[in-house]
Design a protein around this nucleic acid. Structure first.
Length: 723
DNA sequence: TACTATTTAATTTTT
DNA sequence: TTAAATAGTA
């Protein structure tokens, strides 16, 4: 067997990982070290060289994108069709198992997947129906609690209330929520994982079957696994399965979503004799960038430990710019982008990263002014749009009448005379008889409602029945088209003024073409419609459609994970914003922020700009902040400060800080003032220094007074008291 | 029921 | 600041 194509071009460490014997392996793969490559080549190695059947391979990722990439690359490398391989996201594979074993899972065959938005609506309704005190019980928080418990693999009966009535109430909400979902055949994201785990745990035969089948378990982004995902993997591996997991403990940034880096440590304990391979050679960035990243992340404790290096050059220093405010920061970014483009570079090779979405606004304004095309990542995805979800709700009702979530969504959309009162009666009936709203509607219409309301409800019921009847034998896209037509949603949106309604109608048309392009998998044990609906929930589609114009990329540092760009800006690098205020108090939180910073730095291939503003308008208030402590963690030999016009103290590393603690606070220039400094004026009162210019006797300062507004004052006359 | 005024709260996000 | 949710009004 010629193994050259599989091993060619791999470095020693990568080769070691790819050719590892069939024993548990943990690959610590630094940023840009060829992690996906190793995973793909490992799969190829197992199949082509070790003679492992493709059928006995299971490959798990977190995102659909990663799954698609892995599938594509394995196919390209092996030149084998990979359609039926178990390659997918945790949720996708769990879903596949549940569809196949819906009886064991205790689900109706046509169960539907609800997304977090559906889940939240459902909980809001639940809270209302239980007349929960709105000031005490916020749906978001209840949702957070429930998902948190599910991520840990816990059902209500597993949770101890610790004698805390608050907690007891949350558990009780969780219980009611489960009942509603069960009755409606609804499964949320966390539930997919939880049930997939439970059917294996509780069915010895099923477990044995899958253990026999999956000899090799390949896991991507292992540092992001939550408790239930890890438990599922462990269960599936048993004593005979060979897990091959790849991850980077330094890039774990989803702790708040249940991810636990600790699994990397636990893995070695759970699978004795684990072979550990570290991939430290980086193929992305200059040594300078890597040095900076290494230095920053070194401040974290409890790491596996790893140092990135490259055979490439040192490259240019990292540029740090201290902006006066967020607009100045944006202008600076624009200037550099202009240079970049003028030098003949591609706009799409430049990324502007920030900690929180709110920061994009100022940057966007500046980009619009400068007429530089840009694209913001994130935002509403196609299948999450309200009009799409409306149409899907009708479709879901045709498949599953008991889907209360969909029922509530469209029962009076467009308005058909079923008002809040009528719906409330249905809810009450449903609650009293533990049935779905659909059944309640039928029962109430014939007994309790007056003529007008009863007619309206009957009209809705027969509309859904008609939809189901008339589309029964149609192809998927005709089905979608016909249901949309019967729903009269288009007519409803036509009444919307402005472009909004038009876009909505276009989107509905787009939904029909999406259905047309959808290829159902005949191996799946469900109708093409149910498959399409699941697909819509599981893969919400792209955020922004117009991806193909050459655009500057704007995104949060979180969504930048996994991407790389020749030119990167990290904006808003200020204490309080990054690290975020809400994380600084807690050491774990701070370490996670630092990992996020590490992720940000390692996105850059050639050029990295780090910017911070001394003054930033947040929530309508001007705030003054220090440069992020993370900037100070970058060794100064890798940093070039741009335009040191203003004395912005670069925060010092702790050793330095203790030596010069007095200097840190004042960091004054020769005028004895600094930006953001509090001052007092005889006449104008208290204020803050915004800017200054000039030297000696001509030096002037701009001061924002609390009561008197913003003024320029000549320093030598003003007699300011420094506070 | 639809529109307008007021209040409230404001990381990160994929499935 | 502003977006979203809620309350109040026509």
């Amino acid at each position: 067997m010629d193994v050259t194509p599989i091993l060619d071009g791999l470095n020693d460490a990568q080769r070691q990982a790819v050719t590892a014997p069939s024993e548990p392996a943990l690959v610590i793969a630094g940023a840009g070290s060829g992690k996906t490559r190793v995973l793909v080549h490992r799969a190829a190695w197992l199949i082509d060289v070790e003679g492992v059947s493709p059928q006995s391979l299971l490959a798990v990722t977190f995102t659909n994108k990663a799954a698609a990439e892995m599938r594509g690359r394995i196919e390209a490398l092996l030149k084998v069709p990979v359609q039926h391989l178990w390659i997918g996201t945790f949720h996708g594979l769990a879903h596949r198992m549940l569809r196949r074993h819906w009886r064991e899972a205790g689900l109706p065959q046509n169960f539907q997947i609800i997304d977090s938005d559906d889940q939240l609506r459902l909980l809001k309704r639940l809270l209302k129906s239980q007349q929960a005190d709105e000031s005490r019980w916020v749906a978001k928080e209840v949702q957070w609690f429930i998902n948190g418990q599910k991520d840990e693999g816990l059902r209500p009966r597993h949770i101890d209330d610790d004698g805390d009535p608050n907690r007891r109430q949350l558990i009780s909400f969780y219980e009611s929520y489960e009942e509603i979902c069960q009755r409606g055949g609804l499964v949320d994201f966390a539930e997919l994982l939880l049930r997939a785990h439970e059917i294996l745990r509780d069915n010895a035969e099923l477990l044995a079957h899958y253990r026999r089948r999956f000899q090799h378990l390949l896991v991507d982004e292992f540092q992001d696994t939550n408790a239930i995902q890890y438990a599922w993997l462990r269960l599936l591996a048993g004593d005979t399965g060979v897990p091959f997991v790849v991850g980077d403990d330094d890039q774990s940034i989803y702790r708040w979503r249940g991810a636990r880096v600790e699994h990397i440590h636990r893995f070695q304990a759970d699978f004795p004799g684990t072979r550990i391979v570290k991939l430290e050679q980086n193929y992305r960035s200059t040594q300078t960038i890597l040095n900076a990243a290494n230095a920053v992340i070194e401040n974290n404790s409890s790491r596996m430990g790893k140092k990135l290096w490259t055979e490439g050059s040192d490259g240019e220093p990292i540029k740090v710019y201290s902006a006066y405010n967020e607009r100045d920061e944006a202008d600076f970014v624009i200037g550099r982008l202009r240079d970049w483009i003028a030098q003949g570079n591609v706009r799409a090779d430049a990324a502007v990263l920030y900690r929180s979405n709110a920061q994009s606004r100022v940057l966007e304004e500046a980009l619009i002014n400068a007429r530089i095309p840009y694209r913001v990542y994130g935002g509403l995805r196609f299948f999450e749009r309200a009009e799409i979800k409306d149409a899907l709700a009708y479709l879901r009702l045709t498949s599953n009448r008991d889907d209360d979530s969909s029922f509530e969504r469209v029962v009076n959309k467009p308005t058909r005379g079923i008002g809040a009162r009528t719906v409330e009666m249905m809810r009450a009936y449903a609650r009293a008889n533990a049935c779905s709203l659909w059944r309640a509607a039928g029962a109430i219409a014939s007994d309790d409602l007056n003529g007008r309301a009863a007619n309206a409800v009957n009209a809705f019921v027969s509309l859904i029945e008609r939809m189901a009847r008339e589309t029964r034998s149609l192809d998927l896209h005709d089905k979608v088209d016909h249901v949309i037509h019967l729903s009269t949603l288009v007519e409803l949106f036509k009444k919307d003024k402005g472009e909004k309604g038009e876009t909505r109608i276009e989107n509905l048309a787009e939904l029909v073409s999406a259905a047309k392009g959808f290829e159902p998998d005949p191996a799946q044990e469900m109708s093409p419609l149910d498959e399409f609906l699941s697909h819509a929930a599981l893969e919400a589609g792209e955020g922004q459609a117009d991806a193909w114009e050459d655009c500057v990329q704007l995104m949060t540092m979180h969504s930048a994970k996994g991407l790389e760009f020749p030119l990167v800006f990290m904006c808003g690098m200020e204490d309080g914003l990054f690290p975020h205020q809400r994380s600084v108090a807690d050491p774990d939180g701070l370490e996670e922020e630092r990992r996020l910073c590490y992720v940000g730095i390692t996105r850059a291939m050639q050029t990295l700009y780090i910017t911070h503003a001394e003054q930033r308008r947040l929530h309508g208030m001007d705030n003054y902040s220090q440069a992020s402590r993370f900037i100070a963690e970058i060794p100064s030999e890798h940093v070039e400060e741009i335009r040191p016009r203003v004395q912005v103290a670069r925060p010092m590393r702790s050793s330095e800080a203790s030596r010069r603690s007095s200097a840190t606070t004042s960091a004054a220039n020769e005028l004895g003032v600094r930006l953001g400094q509090q001052v007092r004026h005889k006449k104008f009162g208290d204020g803050v220094i915004l800017n200054y210019e000039g030297q000696g006797a001509h030096a002037r300062v701009e001061v924002n007074f609390e009561t008197a507004g913003t003024k320029w004052l000549v320093l030598s006359y003003a007699n300011l008291d420094l506070m």
